[in-house]
């Protein structure tokens, strides 16, 4: 960039520059302000409960007892289920679209996968209540209990609304994120890599395994982390199917609660300041976790997009 060149500047020019500069800075200010605003509102709760807020198991607003562990547990378990299902499938979608499909198939299926991301979360929740949860209760959960019932995760009576339903619906919702980022970083792998592998007599799978995946690995990790970030904070669909009960149970069939769900359900019902403050603190924890995840994910994706040899990509 030729920074030294002085352009002829008029008043309008200056105004344009200052306006765009202000707007750019406002985004930075917005981020800091949001963090500060939340910290400020959460402070009464932080001061009152300290660390016990995170490890406390009892959430009883009537007795002014606030422990967020059941929500943290529900959030982590549902997000892990989602990750376990969505990461391999999302990666498969990316491989299929990038390395296998013809361009027309790629356009159509690529569009359909994007549509999966475009469906509003509340619609997934509606579908979850009336289609997914009954299906889990009547078919999937009895089956799992019958065949895998010796594992504590699959014990217990089938309810339908619970961590399994939450995890499944999250898997559907984060799959497009993982697929899209994996596609992006796999597209950044130079074709020379692929051709070299093929020229050595590799089969297509060997080419993918030896030439594409190692190169894209950290970017794919980044995509999975972004997916995890989305799963942790996803609110509506989970609220509608997780059962909304602040218990910590091993069974995945059991109703549970998530951090975002308790905020969604109880925020407008918080009758006194400390209650509200405790809910904001849950939000603050969520904010902190997703922020850290995003930073790591972006660093990983950038490292791939730039490429080891610093090609012309990005």
């Amino acid at each position: 960039m030729s920074k030294k060149i002085k352009y002829k500047t008029s008043f309008g020019d200056q105004l344009m520059w200052i306006l765009t500069l202000l707007m750019a800075i406002s985004v930075l200010v917005l981020m800091v302000w949001m963090g500060w605003q939340m910290y400020h509102s959460a402070r009464p709760s932080i001061q009152r409960f300290g660390f016990s807020f995170i490890i406390g198991r009892v959430w009883d607003p009537v007795k002014e007892q606030f422990g967020a562990l059941p929500f943290i547990y529900g959030t982590i378990v549902t997000s892990l289920i989602a990750l376990l299902l969505a990461a391999p499938i999302g990666l498969s979608v990316a491989i299929f679209l990038n390395e296998m499909a013809l361009s027309k198939v790629r356009t159509v299926i690529g569009f359909l996968v994007e549509m999966l991301a475009a469906i509003p979360s509340v619609v997934y929740g509606l579908w979850g209540i009336f289609v997914l949860a009954p299906w889990l209760r009547e078919t999937v959960e009895p089956g799992l209990a019958k065949w895998l019932g010796f594992i504590p995760f699959f014990k217990g009576s089938p309810v339908g609304f619970g961590m399994l339903a939450g995890g499944l619906i999250l898997a559907i919702m984060i799959l497009p994120t993982i697929a899209a980022i994996s596609r992006e970083v796999m597209a950044a792998v130079p074709n020379m890599q692929r051709e070299a592998a093929l020229a050595l007599g590799a089969t297509k799978w060997e080419m993918i395994r030896l030439a594409v995946l190692p190169y894209a690995k950290s970017g794919i990790m980044g995509g999975v982390m972004l997916g995890l970030g989305r799963a942790l904070g996803e609110t509506m669909a989970v609220t509608m199917v997780i059962g909304n009960r602040p218990d910590i149970l091993l069974s995945l069939f059991a109703p549970a609660y998530s951090m975002a769900a308790v905020i969604a359900n109880e925020f407008t019902e918080a009758t006194y300041d400390l209650y509200l403050s405790a809910l904001v603190e849950i939000g603050l924890i969520l904010f902190g976790i997703t922020l850290i995840l995003n930073v790591f994910a972006r660093l990983l994706i950038w490292s791939v997009a730039k490429g080891p040899k610093g090609g012309s990509l990005v």
């Binding site: 985004v27 949001m34 605003q37 939340m38 997703t290």
Partner: peptide, 27 residues
């Protein structure tokens, strides 16, 4: 500055939308 703004943009894209609700409620 630009790196910072891009970073903030990514962070804002990634934070859960319910957080935005909380902030606007309190503010």
């Amino acid at each position: 500055l630009s790196v910072g703004v891009r970073f903030a943009t990514d962070v804002l894209t990634g934070i859960p939308s319910i957080i935005v609700g909380i902030v606007i409620y309190t503010a």
